[in-house]
Design a protein around this nucleic acid. Sequence first.
DNA 1: CTGTTAGCGCGTTCAA
DNA 2: TTGAACGCGCTAACAG
Lengths: 355, 355
Amino acid sequence: MRTRLKDVAKALNLSISTVNAVLRNRSDISKATRRRVFDKVKELNYRPNWVARSLVTQRTQVLGVVVPDLSRSFFTEVIKGIDLVASAIRYHLVLTNTGEDPRREDDEVATLISKQVDGLVIASAHDPGDNVVWRNLSKMGVPFVLVDRAFPNAPFVGVDDERIGFIATTHLVDQGYERIAHLRVPSLSTGIGRVRGYLKALRQHGIRARQDYMVDAEFHSEASGYEATKILLQRSPRPDAIFAASDPIAIGAMQALLEEGVRIPLDCGLIGVGQVRYGEYLKVPLSTVDQHRVEIGKLAAKALLDLVSGQKKPAKPILIEPTLIVRASSLRHPRTPRPRGAQENRARAAIPRNG
Amino acid sequence: MRTRLKDVAKALNLSISTVNAVLRNRSDISKATRRRVFDKVKELNYRPNWVARSLVTQRTQVLGVVVPDLSRSFFTEVIKGIDLVASAIRYHLVLTNTGEDPRREDDEVATLISKQVDGLVIASAHDPGDNVVWRNLSKMGVPFVLVDRAFPNAPFVGVDDERIGFIATTHLVDQGYERIAHLRVPSLSTGIGRVRGYLKALRQHGIRARQDYMVDAEFHSEASGYEATKILLQRSPRPDAIFAASDPIAIGAMQALLEEGVRIPLDCGLIGVGQVRYGEYLKVPLSTVDQHRVEIGKLAAKALLDLVSGQKKPAKPILIEPTLIVRASSLRHPRTPRPRGAQENRARAAIPRNG
DNA sequence: CTGTTAGCGCGTTCAA
DNA sequence: TTGAACGCGCTAACAG
């Protein structure tokens, strides 16, 4: 049996509340008893029972984290960021994996709430159309912050996807590429933003977008990038650069290009998104756009903890500025001054575009 | 305010315990009240408060997971495995990252226990010499299972590291390599096992081990593999194959080899451990040994849940058989029948060698 | 300075 | 078939 407050009290012939007063650092306790209590606590190895405490205080020191897929390094990195700031103030994280199933998400969130988590970080599997998500949540009065996938009028921390598309595409233009294709993921808000940025960059540089230069792929699948690229290579004229919506897609694309004897970056430039590990050790070191995944987690946790402590109102969406990472796969003109500085940039929270 | 049992009872003019009886599916309740209660529960959207319930039942439906580093895909994959079986029976996971600090580990474990987790999966940061870890734990009576790093006489799930070393080295021998070096990690039990397997394989094939063919590196660091390989290349005669204790080390080694104009696998074979993502897309597709990380998590969770439900005694260590994955980096004799089958093998729990 | 008392929301006797 | 009463371990009033 674990030692309880009662045991400590009994051993000292004190009342429970006196012992408690000592532990809660109440000022009106004599030095003598204070010492006695502390000694006994150490001797008996007493640790307060958090379950009992939580029942009273309505605080568990636990944050719920809901993600659609633990296989994706994006989410594990975000979790790392959350943990970094949460653990610093002795909060714990409860994890749940929804497997991209909105119903399961609702269920898990409900369970987490009944487990009294102090707040939630959610990468929602819901359709951006649904406002079910945050409606239920705000009804329950549980603070929450969304990550990765934004919903209107809900606290959100994520990268600016339109900027990602814009930065990547602009970089390709700068490198002298002219027929820039895009492997997109139109099923997620994240993917849609990147398409917008892509189109915007083309427009800005007076390049006409071609429908047949946009092919669908899946975020997490090298195979989809491979297949999509095979399709792309049948276009005429062939694209001379590819902006892939994710690094896995780009890796599949790289495979397809090399297989067809297309030289990277000479015949075709390639850039992805995500800054996956080992990207620089691939057959051709892969240019990419860093989303600052850990930073997203950190900022989300900070925002959430602000909400939990009631210090701040639900803030406006926080959009992190992505960073271009140039490697060989998109570097056609090595003479062009390579933007080294960009790689060193730290993430900064930018002013949100929509309130 | 969230609805409580009391609210449901009041709304129906029933007593709390009657409502509770319905929800706990007690048999001696009339169909009529049963219906009324269920309807009201749905109407008021009642969810039992897990904190209160846990205080009474001494069960939280939560497992603690303690890992030294959330950056390593090994651990996130193990966590995925744990979650897979835990979530299936509606258990949640509480995460803690100890940052390889034994003291922090002890502290976190204590906190998790005071949060009343039903059991713990621990990848310990302690020195294998310490038996502090499981001594404290068994004193508290909290079920636990160790993963990744074994301690004598404690429930453990992991891969058989000696087999890893043996399999990898034997494979290199089979490919006709004769001067096989090893980039080792002697600071961890895991690394030590791999060294043993390496030496055993050499011995078994009548190859004399050379001290100067073993260079230290760090598990998670490409840079360390790179540096170590540079050292290795100064030996005379040069090694003609390298068994790296991890994939990151192997990736660093690959970089160093290519930089020095050493052809892989012709001049030098290379194999790692870990089956990292994108290993097949590297400059030279990397041979490796799969540790079945997700499987480790699954088995650990199963073993732990058995302990939690009190069905089984602390089992003997469970050692998973690793699987050789052959890719280009170690394939010098393409004519040699490539062990395709090995790639398809599923993990199996093997009989432990020591009790 | 210290002790008494009354909950937090739920589970579990035992009466009615 | 239903309800009253107690306790899980702790916090926080309020007395003394």
